[in-house]
């Protein structure tokens, strides 16, 4: 009996390396060249200087930009203000998102889920600018919707400023917190909660000892969105911030006249996020789940 080898077909089958190459070339090129490349350029530029006289970028290495950022009070105040806004927005998003996501994933009938997810997503269909301008009119001192609501209670509205920014950013990034937390909660088996109750834990204890630790990775994922998106925002501060400026505004104000300094300011949120991720990893909460 003779054996013949079928060679006329299956080129890709016999060359798995090429197959993977074909799949990954374009995205890898994008990731390395465009994304990581521009990040590297940003990082390098942060250490360059500007010639005071000609306004040209001088490629000499120094830490001056960072020194400047942390010694000029207007700048470092805006650093801390931005971080506090980002933290506050993240906490508010968490406080709103966790009960809501819990309702969506575990309390409401299963058939409601797609509708509720769609409702959470609807704000994302509208343009960012439209939503921020909507908040500008809502936050308007005296005549805005919020001021009008609070007037019978004898309170003034938050107006434009720090609180306005926090409220608007919380509104903008809330879906990015709800969705991962919701996904985490749907992955939680019913039997896990039953088991906790079965072993004598009331609902509060189960939430604290079982639910929170198990959805912690989802909470971290959501908080990375809300935190980093808040850190980098500057348009919201421009529209509803009044005189309050965030880091993004500093970048915007300086990148024409002093590109290296703007780069240094822009590097800061990246470093903060990296530190945050390292801290989370240290807790070990992302393993074992």
């Amino acid at each position: 009996m003779t054996t013949t080898t079928a060679t006329h077909r299956g080129f890709w089958y016999r060359h798995p390396g090429l197959r993977q190459g074909g799949l990954l070339t374009a995205p890898m090129a994008w990731l390395v060249v465009v994304y990581l490349g521009s990040l590297a350029a940003l990082f390098l530029t942060a250490f360059y200087q500007v010639d005071d006289f000609t306004g040209q970028v001088v490629r000499s290495f120094s830490l001056k930009n960072f020194q400047n950022l942390f010694t000029t009070s207007a700048y470092y105040q805006s650093v801390f203000r931005t971080i506090s806004i980002a933290v506050l927005v993240t906490v508010l998003c968490l406080v709103i998102a966790v009960p809501l996501a819990f309702f969506m994933a575990r309390v409401a009938p299963r058939s409601w889920r797609p509708v509720m997810v769609a409702l959470v997503l609807t704000p994302l269909w509208a343009s960012y600018l439209v939503k921020v301008y909507a908040w500008r009119s809502m936050l308007q001192p005296d005549t805005g919707v919020i001021a009008w609501f609070l007037k019978p209670l004898g309170l003034g509205g938050p107006g434009y400023g720090y609180l306005g920014i926090v409220i608007t950013l919380t509104y903008l990034w809330l879906p990015y917190m709800i969705l991962p937390v919701y996904a985490g909660l749907t992955r939680l088996p019913d039997s896990m909660l039953d088991a906790s109750a079965d072993l004598g834990a009331h609902s509060g204890r189960t939430f604290r000892s079982i639910v929170i630790p198990l959805i912690f990775p989802s909470v971290v994922a959501g908080s990375i969105f809300t935190f980093s998106l808040s850190l980098g925002d500057y348009i919201t501060a421009q529209i509803v911030g009044g005189k309050v400026t965030m880091l993004g505004n500093v970048v915007q104000q300086t990148y024409v006249t002093n590109l290296p300094f703007a780069a240094a300011v822009a590097t800061l949120p990246v470093i903060i996020i990296l530190l945050y991720l390292l801290a989370v990893r240290k807790t070990g909460a992302l393993e074992n789940v």
Partner: peptide, 20 residues
């Protein structure tokens, strides 16, 4: 009575061990 107030314990089909 809620489950936590009953003197019974359950072994679940999927064991339901706490992974953390």
């Amino acid at each position: 009575a809620p489950p936590y107030a009953r003197d019974v314990n359950t072994v679940f089909q999927d064991y339901a061990l706490f992974p953390h």
